[in-house]
């Protein structure tokens, strides 16, 4: 060994173990996860994209208004719950991206926190007639 020998009592046997049968099915588990990642992503068409951007903008404004609300004040707008639901799905970076960059290269995944959330939102959007109020009402009813 470079730099001299280790004490003789040291040995290279691995002291780590794994749960029984771990290596028996890990290929299956990994392939299952791979198949999960392959679930189809429905891309938003041009109009849906703008509808999403409008919703995001509305949400941003709602959040801004909420920031002005005194702590503990009751929610006085029915759309707030729906907006908060959206807030759960979308992150700050996504709002910024939506507001600043709305060209053809926009991809729905930029708006979402995770792939699952993105897929949820997209599936939901395509299953609805667009006006954003309808969408938000539906979210509120969930």
């Amino acid at each position: 060994m470079t730099g001299g020998k280790f004490p003789e009592y040291l040995h290279k046997d691995s002291p780590f173990t794994v749960p029984d049968g771990y290596f028996d099915d890990f290929q299956k588990r990994i392939m299952l996860r791979i198949r999960e990642t392959e679930k189809p992503v429905i891309r938003l068409n041009r109009y849906l994209k703008y509808a999403v951007a409008a919703g995001i903008l509305l949400l941003s404004l709602t959040i801004l208004l909420l920031h002005d609300r005194p702590p503990g004040a009751p929610l006085d707008d029915q759309s707030t719950d729906a907006a908060l639901t959206w807030a759960y799905h979308l992150d700050k970076t996504a709002w910024m991206a939506a507001m600043l960059d709305m060209d053809e290269t926009d991809r729905p995944e930029y708006y979402c926190c995770t792939e699952e959330q993105e897929t949820d939102i997209i599936y939901f959007l395509v299953s609805q007639d667009i006006p954003i109020e309808t969408l938000m009402q539906s979210l509120q009813d969930e």
């Binding site: 794994v18 290596f23 890990f26 990994i30 791979i34």
Partner: peptide, 27 residues
Amino acid sequence: GRRLYWHIRKIVIVHEDADDVLQNTFE
């Protein structure tokens, strides 16, 4: 998979973490 698992395990130490990292690696 097995060799990668042991390599990862020695870095992250905990089995559950190594399993997560291995899955991320293959993804």
